[in-house]
């Protein structure tokens, strides 16, 4: 049984975590830590956690024997210190992807976990979507042959974008970031590297230049073109504030040397007819992605192995986001020769 503490966040993650935890026999949430008493108790109720504390350090002091791992939703600049404290106490760590959008902070976190020999996993939930898992499994089975061309679309509505951007831009600034954060883009870059199992050799980025939008911000849409070794390639379209309120569109297709996978350009939609036009409604994947993600974390801890999305994956994705920003700013392809990194986890 893995006993998990849940720390920080705005409370929105607690519901998904609770739903997922219900589905994993050997995982329970025992402690909730949050400075706001109302949110703390609400989260504890949702998660059926019996213990609460006003901070992670307080939870470690008082209830350190009651949990084995901690999921930290915070993106404050104090996160590396929190992680160091938890890791020193022998707690395995589950963090938001992509590690504060700061390579320096990310490296501190990774070092702290390595020195304490605890597992560090990043919540890159996009990798655990059922469709992604299916594509990766069949790719890893060899049935598709070698990956050749990956195409990703990831478009968001304004509210989904602004929530994330506000949070992460602030975090990046606090941790010394040199470019604006865009976690949704970084996630897609990680997906591409995960699919090809390595670092791209070049990237080229186009963005929409908009009146009234600062050049120090990401455009609302970027088109990232990645080249990998042996002629392999990826096209990634990421858009913010592009869809009607509350909508999100995400599809992937992978053309490989012996087959292909398509997941799914119509985004698993169904038709509904009411007054007016026909509407397309998305068929929810429920909490499957979060459940897969938590199960992987629990198994990695139990088996004392590296989890599927470790700290290095975050570092690689951050480096690639930096290069994408550079490519966008210069309007020229960026060659990554000499910037080679180890294969992402």
């Amino acid at each position: 049984m893995m006993r998990l503490a849940f720390s920080g966040g705005d409370g929105s993650g607690a519901t998904g975590l609770a739903e997922a935890a219900l589905r994993i026999a050997d995982l329970s949430v025992t402690v909730v830590a949050h400075p706001d008493a109302v949110r703390r108790h609400q989260a504890a109720a949702v998660l059926s956690a019996g213990l609460t504390a006003s901070s992670l350090s307080a939870a470690l002091d008082r209830y350190g024997g009651e949990f084995d791992a901690v999921m930290i939703e915070s993106t404050s600049s104090g996160l590396p210190d929190d992680v160091a404290s938890a890791a020193a106490a022998g707690k395995h760590i589950l963090l938001a992807f992509p590690l504060l959008d700061s390579v320096v902070a990310a490296e501190r976190i990774i070092t702290a976990c390595r020195q304490s020999d605890v597992r560090l996993m990043l919540c890159q939930t996009a990798r655990f979507r059922p469709s992604q898992i299916a594509v990766r499994q069949v790719l890893e089975s060899g049935k598709l042959g070698e990956p050749a061309l990956l195409r990703i679309h990831a478009w968001d509505s304004q509210s989904l974008t602004s929530q994330r951007e506000t949070r992460d831009v602030a975090a990046a600034a606090g941790a010394g970031g040199t470019r604006p954060a865009w976690p949704r883009l970084t996630e897609q870059l990680d997906l591409a590297m995960g699919m090809f199992g390595g670092w791209p050799s070049e990237l080229y980025v186009l963005g929409r230049q908009e009146a009234g939008r600062s050049r120090s911000e990401w455009p609302r849409h970027v088109q990232v073109h990645l080249g990998f070794g042996e002629g392999r390639m990826a096209l990634i379209s990421v858009a913010s504030e592009a869809l009607p309120e509350g909508e999100r569109y995400a599809t992937v297709s992978l053309i490989a040397s012996a087959g292909a996978a398509y997941a799914d350009d119509f985004d698993q939609t169904q038709l509904v007819y009411r007054s007016g036009c026909a509407r397309a409604f998305k068929t929810s994947e429920g909490t499957a992605a979060v459940t897969h993600e938590l199960r992987e974390f629990a198994e990695a801890v139990r088996q004392k192995r590296d989890p599927a999305v470790g700290g290095n994956a975050g570092i690689h994705a951050l480096h690639l986001t930096d290069l994408a920003w550079q490519a966008l700013s210069t309007g020229q392809p960026v060659q990554t020769k000499g910037l080679q990194h180890a294969s992402p986890q």
Partner: peptide, 30 residues
């Protein structure tokens, strides 16, 4: 901006003539 992914990808890669899809982002929708 625009992008094209194009290929003659082999009969094993699709049950029909092939995947031909177009997506358009506009200032008011997609």
């Amino acid at each position: 901006t625009a992008s094209v992914a194009i290929g003659r990808i082999g009969a094993a890669s699709h049950p029909d003539i092939g995947e031909i899809r177009i997506s358009v982002l506009g200032s008011e929708g997609a």
